[in-house]
Nucleic acid binder design. Sequence first.
DNA 1: TTAGGGTTAG
Length: 564
Amino acid sequence: MRVLHQIHARLLTHAMPISSISFGLCKIIGFCALSTYGDIDYARKLFSQIQSPNIFSWNSMIRGCSQSQTPSKEPVILFRKMVRRGYPNPNTFTMAFVLKACSIVSALEEGQQVHASVLKSGFGSSPFVETALVNFYAKCEDIVRASKVFDEITDRNLVAWSTMISGYARIGLVNEALGLFRDMQKAGVVPDEVTMVSVISACAASGALDTGKWVHAYINKQLIETDLELSTALVNMYAKCGCIERAKEVFDAMPVKDTKAWSSMIVGLAIHGLAEDALEEFFRMEEAKVKPNHVTFIGVLSACAHSGLVSEGRRYWSSMLEFGIVPSMELYGCMVDLLCRASLVEDAYTLVETMPISPNPVIWRTLLVGCKKNKNLDKSEIVAQRLLELEPHNAENYILLSNLYASMSQWEKMSQVRKKMKDMGIKAVPGCSSIEVDGLVHEFVMGDWSHPEAMDIREILRDISKRVHAVGHQPGISDVLHNVVDEEKENALCEHSERLAIAYGLLKTKTPKAIRIVKNLRVCGDCHEVTKIISAEYRREIIVRDRVRFHKFVNGSCSCRDFW
DNA sequence: TTAGGGTTAG
């Protein structure tokens, strides 16, 4: 920047034509607006001093503003200003930069307006603009439009394919992401490490371990460079697919590890309930002089929470403050969870009350789960009130409260909650579990009969019921929402999505292959017990990734040691 | 001067 300041001073002090000064200033703006070495504020100042900036400096400003630490709609405002002035005319660079800016802040409406100008201006055939459009719609999670733009591209290059695959992967459409990856190969386009990051991330999101392993083997076979980003994606994939040993192998082999790589490993160990290993890695990270960020501490604190390490958790909270990390909502969430799991609901409540930021619904919901666990009726009603004020239309809250009353046999109050839910037309979010078989992810929702092999699945479920009863299991019926007769409650439990997915796993795979399930909600207490029994009765390892963590069921017990 | 990538509370 010092050199640029000197050049700027020379431009102003030496006699030369106005047009040359202006041209020079535009060049300086271009350099200043670059995020790596630049100074966007200085660029802004210079930009405001030129009467008629050229297209290069407008483009530099639009791009520079979008790379700011605190992204805003400023690039869109600049673009509109330029169009209003009528000079200079935007070019393909302008369109690509402004679309990128819209994708960063998910400005769907503004981006659509840019899309309209792209069509009018005829820049739609530029590969850079086409890809920027796909990326923009994908980042705004409008995957239908992203896919439409992608389909209309006549000559799809590597970047276009990768962008679309990444779009599917980001929203968890794993079969679509993998299907497109296969189409890309059929089209003769050779993937690179950026493509593979998205493919691996899709496997991670869906818990598709077999596909993930296949893709990893493909990366090695094709000699695709496993750079920092791809290695981190692999660590994350193995961890999220329940294969923490492989995650550790990939991580240990990494020659360079940055904050995200360490955080990925620590979070991975935490969700596997391996608190000691997670804390050991954190210690090594400090030794390696890599600075932790708030995500690293999310891993550290959740590791403590899942293992009941309260005093350690408190200590790490203090050290986090010493690192200068300002506690985010997520970090408060971790701490509230840590205290609640350790039955310190009052402490958790005090922490929430003293938070400098206004607690969000997740915080209140975590507290409510803590109240349910500790059967703290008084606090739970205060907490529920705050939660419902903030989120009156979220079915999950009513179900949680209803289950809380059910667990305390407060049937009248439970009915009131159910009635309120019905009156407001709020429907429960169904539990959904998935299992990967032969490279395809099969999804099941609670009470699902839509699968082509539904009849065979029911037969397995009946066999499970018989065996579970034979070992004397009593269904934990308070986990069921409905206040109906016990037999019906039991039937409802048998239809939980994870049981359908486990039954499908038993139907389609053989010992010693582990059954791996991914569930969108937390596993209920009864399913947890039944899965333990299944693991012993059928001599199968069953690994369930629920919304919070992993459960590894082997020979009648679970890796979470019933603490989850 | 242009487009695609990795960690995140319940």
